[in-house]
Amino acid sequence: MGGISRYILQRLLLTIPMLFILITLVFIVMRMMPGGPAEAMLGGRNVSLEQLAKVRHEYGLDRPLGVQYLSYMDDILHGNFKNSVLTGRPVLTELFTRFPATLELAFWGMLFALIFGFGTGIIASTQADRPIDHTIRVFHIGSFAMPLFWLGLMLQIIFAVKLGWLPVASRISGRMAFSFQSVTGFYLIDALLSGNGAIIADVAKHLILPSITLGFAQAGFLGRITRASMLEVLDADYITTARAKGVKERIVIFSHALHNALIPIVTVFGLQFAILMGGAILTETVFSWPGVAQFLVRSIDARDFHSIQGSIVFIAIFISVINLIVDVLYSVIDPRVRY
């Protein structure tokens, strides 16, 4: 136990300077903006130079960079993400109202990736070098090369516009939205809680295309790793022994081999989550998904610098926490890493 808590502490101590660096980076990047945020905010209005100066002053943009940086750091340390320039509401509120949407999408996307990735990976490894293996490998490599937004649009064209089976975009149908109460922000959970079959079906339908879109590239990646590590494990002595003992092939694969093949997969999970967040920015754009990533894109378009800053810091913290959890989990699965 002492080992684990020491390890967690170690990782935590490492997370803090990393976050610090990221947050500093965000500050530097935000100050690269041409024209300055004040001009962007007032853009196109009939404003006087005095009014511009007033806005600059109001947002503290007329102070020296060093002072701005210190107050920026101070604000973040105190959890003060300021107000959105665009909507006037606290950025943190804006983020928290949208976060469940992103998390829900990420969850189903990841689940799709896991099922599809494991599935194809295992099939490929047991059918090594047969045509089905080659087909799956082509799919794995191809999924790398597939632009996520394009996949999303193609799915929309086929399943929504041409076939009309699934909705084009958004989380829930307009009419449903008002006969249903979202408590957790996770619509599927809320729908299940409501016990209304029509709502459950509607929410689930809305989730299918975005989840596939977001999870597709991950599925290919996980499939590749699964296949590779399964091949490695399947050759190992203990598997041969198990087979020799007459253990059923299905049990060999799912109980013995898969268990050990999991370890390298868990390692990449943290990083994959970061990539997933990157994919979310495109998926949410294509599917009008009201999540954090879409908020970031809209803030960028509107040059709402408090919101941009806040969103990035928020994502950075989220990713760091995920990485921390994954690392700790990994150390539980494979105690060697702690030393």
């Binding site: 990393m18 660096i21 980076l25 970061a274 990157g278 920015i281 970031l296």
Partner: peptide, 13 residues
Amino acid sequence: AIYSFPSMILAIV
């Protein structure tokens, strides 16, 4: 730190 951050988002920003 940079590596851990979603590269797509960083590039867009």
